[in-house]
Design a binder for these strands. Structure first.
Length: 604
DNA sequence: CGAGAACGCGCG
DNA sequence: AAAGCGCGCGTTCTCG
């Protein structure tokens, strides 16, 4: 039984080429909502069965099986601009059919107004239209020769609601919102390119790495088992079982000092906490056990998160590549997220059980090619300086060294960057400055640094006096949020819903993180245009990844230098788009190399 | 049996 | 109020 609202608009079903031509003529070079139903998730393995279109004049469902297929008419859609939910999906089908129509993602407009996040059409329709949407037909069989009335109706409604939601959002948006929208939406084609390019995984190199981790893990397991039997703790992965065990055997004074988990109050088994408790029983076998447990946990993390899972993904791919998703504006601040797999969390190179570990070396440029990568240096502190107009912070960022300044205060003397001990102080000063960008309190900083409250407070005081405008910025943001009932206006023109009484920590960080994203978004848009242009001139160059403040291209050996220069120009350009008068000295750094772990620094 | 909470940890 | 921001994901465990 089909549930029709009596006021609901009636759609027509298009089953002929003439009918499609008439429909598209009516839309002309105007704007309409569009949604596809397809027989699979990818154009390589399926077909577009239905397209639903809707605006104030038209409301129709096109049956491509009846009119002889989608591919031959895909170009007909290039005159209009299409409003789509999750436009990357529809765009892929168009591109596969050799068409490139304008697609605007309605979700990006929502994110430009409210801030980013992950949501379905059903959610959006609930928020914007107050309608409870049924999605029961979504997984139905779109290959069937005859589609049921229910199938057609539910398909049609997706376009109707997409259109209504777009109209509603347009009414709520101003010029700033549209600027932010264009920034987010403008990244669509670049993102499709990065997702399609992926990164080649050298499976044998990576397997060797995983084998090493396995050996090290087996060794730790055996050592721990000399101290903790299987009867005592059946599964060493289980924090709960470990907590129960230690609660039983440890003396009260140790248990009192043992950090607890947040929700259940169990003994924390976080690595830092295991080591900290270990220090309380310094020199005992128990300390050894706790250290071994933390080492085992690290190895377990690497094996499960960065091990054979990646190899399997590469093996499944015809080109032995790992393809991640880059989800535009998935974070509140509209930063990207990456998923399936998350290539934005591949470990950095580090010392690892006496060796230099590089997981990133497993991601290679294929024969005859190079990876080219640049990142913005210190972008968040730079952005904070620019947003707050803090000349001292900007000057230290560009002509001096913020972390050395803060470190010198901490040490009570002038630090020398060439001395190892001073480098360590500088490193911990870096942590202080980052903490401050995140809005840390003296209490939090003292815990993080394992220093007294007074000492932590003195670092914050120093920071607040040297960079007073930057430090005061958070309060201005909070005042704005209170005044507007919870919205702040960010640098690219968009707004973010902060909640009615946002914390000072969020106020300190959101505008900064957002501005960094705005810069990168602009750079990505520029760079994709550049890359398409270079390709049309015979260069072999593709965008491959973005990791928040970094870009990676995969480029033919001969084109690597040119790609690097182009990337630099685009990243500097993106920065100047957002902060036109800001200095660009020492803005980007990076290099060229055979894999992600060996990018030789190049002066740019 | 599956969904979701809790914990923990990789990245910027 | 929420205790330093933002993510995704693997594992364990509980709940229905």
């Amino acid at each position: 039984m089909i549930q029709y609202d009596t006021n609901e608009r009636q759609f027509e079903v298009i089953t002929t080429l003439d009918g499609l031509e008439d429909l598209l003529d009516k839309i002309g070079d105007g704007v309409a909502a569009l949604d596809f139903e397809t027989t699979s998730f990818t154009p390589q393995t399926g077909e577009v069965r239905l397209a639903q279109v809707c605006n104030k004049d038209v409301y129709a469902v096109i049956d491509f099986f009846a009119i002889g297929g989608f591919a031959s008419v895909a170009k007909w859609f290039e005159d209009a601009a299409w409003i789509v939910f999750h436009a990357g999906f529809e765009l892929r089908w168009f591109q596969y059919a050799g068409a490139n129509p304008t697609c605007w993602d309605v979700g990006h407009l929502r994110r430009a107004i409210e801030g980013g996040g992950h949501f379905t059409l059903k959610k959006l329709v609930g928020w914007e239209l107050g309608i409870e949407m049924s999605k029961e037909q979504q997984a139905s069989n779109w290959s069937a020769p005859e589609l049921s009335d229910e199938q057609l109706l539910y398909a049609a409604r997706d376009a109707l609601y997409t259109w209504d939601a777009w109209e509603k959002l347009k009414k709520r948006s101003d010029a700033g919102h549209m600027r932010a929208f264009n920034l987010l939406d403008g990244m669509l084609t670049a993102v499709i390119e990065m997702e399609e390019t992926g990164l080649v995984l050298d499976r044998s190199v990576h397997q060797d790495l995983v084998d090493k981790w396995e050996l090290l893990a087996v060794d730790r397991e055996a050592e721990v088992r000399k101290m903790i039997t299987e009867d005592e703790v059946a599964n060493l992965n289980s924090g709960k079982q470990l907590s129960d065990f230690f609660s039983k055997i440890m003396p009260d004074h140790i248990l009192e000092a043992w950090p607890r988990t947040e929700k259940t109050g169990a003994l924390s088994t976080a690595n830092d906490d295991l080591k900290q408790v270990g220090a309380l029983v310094h020199g005992t076998p128990l300390q050894d056990t706790l250290i071994l447990l933390s080492e085992r946990s690290t190895l377990q993390k690497y094996i499960s998160s960065f091990g054979t899972g990646l190899i399997t993904r590469a093996t499944m791919d015809p080109n032995r590549r790992v393809h991640a998703r880059y989800n535009i504006a998935a974070a509140i601040t509209c930063r990207f997220s990456s998923s399936a797999p998350n290539l934005q969390q591949i470990p950095r190179d580090r010392d690892f059980f006496g060796e230099r570990l590089s997981v990133r070396r497993s991601f290679i440029a294929p024969e005859g090619k190079q990876l080219v990568s640049l990142d913005y240096s210190g972008i968040e502190l730079r952005v904070l300086a620019l947003l707050s107009g803090d000349e001292q912070l900007l000057d230290d960022m560009i002509n001096g060294d913020v972390h050395l300044e803060v470190g010198s205060h901490m040490a009570g003397r002038k630090l020398d960057k060439k001395i190892t001990a001073d480098k360590e102080i500088r490193q911990s000063a870096k942590g202080v400055s980052f903490g401050i960008v995140y809005g840390i309190t003296a209490l939090g900083l003292s815990a993080a640094m394992k220093r007294s409250y007074e000492e932590a407070q003195s670092y914050i005081d120093f920071w607040a006096s040297r960079y007073s405008k930057a430090f005061a910025f958070r309060d201005a943001v909070q005042t704005e949020a209170f005044d507007t009932g919870g919205y702040i206006r960010v640098i690219d023109g968009g707004t973010i819903w902060m909640g009615k009484r946002p914390s000072i920590t969020k106020c300190a960080n959101y505008p900064v993180q957002r501005a960094a994203l705005s810069i990168m978004a602009s750079a990505i848009i520029r760079h994709h245009e550049t890359v398409v242009d270079l390709r049309s001139h015979g260069r072999d160059i593709r965008m491959a990844s973005t990791i928040h403040d970094a870009l990676i291209d995969e480029v033919a050996q001969a084109d690597a230098q040119a790609a690097l220069l182009a990337m630099k120009a685009d990243m500097v350009g993106g920065y100047k788009d957002i902060f036109p008068h800001a200095p660009t000295d020492r803005l980007v750094e990076g290099g060229i190399g055979p894999n992600w772990g060996q990018l030789e620094d190049v002066e740019v």
